[in-house]
């Protein structure tokens, strides 16, 4: 098992290395000249040249790439040429916001997706199955930014029951930072009011974000349950008088976890993608909004770092998923060998 885990981690490394290179090549062919924006109004060409030299923007591309590689490998993602601050610092501020949102969305997706999938499987080809499929496939079809705006209009404006934007009420202020996760930090600070307020702020963005995940989990649960129900041992059990519902319940209890775990790795990418639009609309101070800002201002250091960090988180999640799967079902590890 340890060998499997090690192997899995080692396999992720070349991909990450390639990612560093890829992102660099991508961001350094930007037509936008960061120097021009930096120098600002009425900068003279000489001023521009000086700024380019200062940030190494005038060096050959390969040389910049080597410098970049060396820096990244030593854990230094550089400073944003706009804010002048280390990029890593801002990512550390923002990563927990995105992870908290994604995690809650994933939780919702599982909590609703598994029962939905189960219900669909038990009514296979019946009206509930079709309805459930319509819902779950529809969840994958809704444009998240559109849904986000609609939810804002309904719940924050018309009904006025949920907050519109942000992670926490401005007047309350954030809980003292320990982990950066407001749910955890407010508990650590013993502030239930902050916890409740955080949950209220999470509600709309998390619901928007969970839909695609919900759809996939429901779909996989459905096919997983169906497959099991067709297994010989189930048929025997059925013949022996066990009810389908009870069998399914046993199956789900045992396998819901496996199905979900297997899906998390795949879903995570979709969740992060969705987060870009959702964060922008709900003003969620996470990595998604940071990425958009970086792109709009041609802040290539920031963009590089975001892509890289998301890639690393993604890889880590996938390694964890594979390891978790192997722990739950040792056959997975066997297969790889």
């Amino acid at each position: 098992m340890a060998r499997y885990i090690l192997r899995r981690i080692l396999l992720a490394l070349p991909a990450l290395f390639g990612l560093v290179l890829l992102t660099f090549v991508l961001t350094r062919v930007i037509p936008a000249d960061p120097a021009a924006t930096l120098a600002g109004d009425a900068a003279t060409p000489a001023q521009l040249a000086e700024i380019r030299a200062r940030y190494g923007l005038d060096r050959p591309l390969w040389e910049q790439a080597v410098t970049h590689m060396r820096q990244v490998l030593s854990g230094d993602l550089g400073s944003s040429i706009f804010s002048g601050r280390p990029v890593m610092e801002e990512i550390v501020f923002r990563l927990p916001a995105t992870l908290e949102l994604t995690f809650v969305a994933l939780l919702l997706a599982t909590g609703l997706g598994v029962p939905l999938g189960l219900l669909a499987a038990l009514n296979h080809n019946g009206p509930i199955d079709h309805l459930a499929r319509l819902i779950s496939v529809g969840g994958l079809a809704i444009a998240s930014f559109w849904l986000a705006i609609m939810l804002q209009l309904i719940f924050a404006m018309d009904l006025d029951v949920l907050p519109l934007r942000g992670r926490i009420d401005v007047a309350l202020g954030a809980p003292p930072t320990v982990t950066g996760f407001f749910l955890v930090d407010s508990l650590l600070a013993g502030r239930l009011d902050l916890l409740v307020d955080t949950l209220r702020h999470l509600a709309l963005p998390a619901v928007t974000l969970c839909l695609p995940g919900l759809a996939s989990i429901a779909r996989f649960t459905r096919s997983g349950v169906l497959e099991t129900l067709q297994k010989d041992f189930v048929l025997y059990a059925q013949a022996a008088g066990y009810g389908r519902v009870r069998l399914a319940a046993i199956y789900v209890l045992r396998n819901a976890v496996t199905v979900t775990v297997a899906q998390i790795g795949l879903l995570f990418g979709a969740l992060i993608s969705g987060a870009v639009a959702v964060e922008a609309i709900f003003d969620w101070p996470g990595l998604g909004t940071y990425a958009v800002q970086a792109i709009l201002s041609a802040d290539y250091k920031a963009l590089l770092a975001v892509t890289l960090v998301v890639g690393v988180v993604y890889a880590v999640v996938n390694v964890l998923v594979d390891v978790a799967q192997a722990l739950i079902d040792p056959r997975v590890a066997e297969q790889v060998k």
Binding site: I149, Q152, A156, M157, D160, P163, L164, R165, G166, V170, A280, I281, F282, D283, T289, V292
Partner: peptide
Amino acid sequence: VMETSTRVLALLRGEI
């Protein structure tokens, strides 16, 4: 507030 529509709604609600 990043998004224009959100910004206006936030003002109308008194959040900003």
